[in-house]
Design a protein around this nucleic acid. Structure first.
Length: 246
DNA sequence: TGATCGCGGCAGCGAGCAAC
DNA sequence: GTTGCTCGCTGCCGCGATCA
């Protein structure tokens, strides 16, 4: 994102409308200082949401594009996802499931891939597993997971000969404060799709008699690159020294 | 009219911790 | 292992003052 270019765009569009910075600030719900900051290209100090508000007020759109060493960024993003998939596969196989990873499909007008398609022969149960290294949009996740679960039975028969009596859903998220907070924030919606959590979910995996929706948090092992590196950006909490009065 | 600066309030985050 | 809370840190942003 080129801050100077965005600043110039904001200024040109504002001038086109014959507005002062104060006018634009009022319409975007921000302060004049912030508009000035943006127009001078110092967008590193401005929240993306505020930038969007300014551009919306000018009837323009903000498009973000992240780049890093060409294709390496995709590899990096996949890495976190792949690690989580690995942990989920271990959990499922330990619970007696046969698994297939990254099952691609093109059925009717729908195409995509199921992160993990699992089969429990003892219960004739199918499981469509969605692995999210980051829960960005709850609605989008639910919509896509639902679509995959709908197609899972058909794909399982055609590709692997698994004839499931039931098709369940499992959402896998990384262990951590942020994912847990995000889930808590959208619990009303998520609880409908994934009523089983933590211990209950793990118990269900061992005996999947009914088609249930489950959600589990799994620890994602650190990558080889990040492991043991000094000067990692991880924040360390510094405890304030406790002074005791006698 | 716009740019710049300092100050302070607030929210969000990661991490630690205790209870269960 | 899970959950809920607190703590400390950081960044965002409004506000007022000042200057060109």
């Amino acid at each position: 994102m080129d801050g100077r270019r965005i600043g110039r765009v904001v200024r040109v569009l504002r001038h086109r409308l014959c507005w002062r910075q104060l006018d634009l600030a009022g319409r975007a719900g921000l302060s004049q200082s912030l508009v000035s900051l943006i127009e001078r290209g110092h967008i590193e100090a401005v929240a993306v949401g505020k930038l969007e508000a300014v551009l919306r007020a000018l009837d323009a759109d903000l498009v973000l594009l992240a780049r890093w060493r060409g294709g390496d960024l995709d590899r990096l993003l996949d890495e976190a996802h792949a690690r989580l998939v690995g942990v989920a596969v271990e959990l499922l196989t330990a619970a007696g499931w046969a698994v297939e990873v990254e099952v691609t499909y093109a059925v009717d007008f729908e195409q995509g891939s199921i992160d993990i398609l699992a089969w429990h022969s003892g219960s004739a149960a199918l499981l469509a597993v969605e692995v999210k290294s980051e829960l960005v949009s709850v609605e989008e996740t639910l919509r896509r997971h639902d679509a995959k679960a709908r197609l899972a039975a058909r794909i399982a028969v055609e590709r692997f000969g698994w004839r499931g009596r039931t098709v369940a859903r499992l959402l896998v998220l990384p262990e951590g404060t942020t994912p847990r907070r995000r889930v808590a924030r959208h619990d009303a919606v998520l609880a409908r799709a994934y009523p089983l959590r933590s211990i209950d979910a793990r118990a269900w995996l061992s005996a999947p008699t009914t088609a249930q929706g489950s959600l589990v948090f799994l620890p994602s092992p650190p990558s080889n690159r990040a492991r043991g590196r000094s000067g990692s950006p991880t924040r360390k909490r510094v405890r304030r020294a406790v002074t005791r009065s006698i």
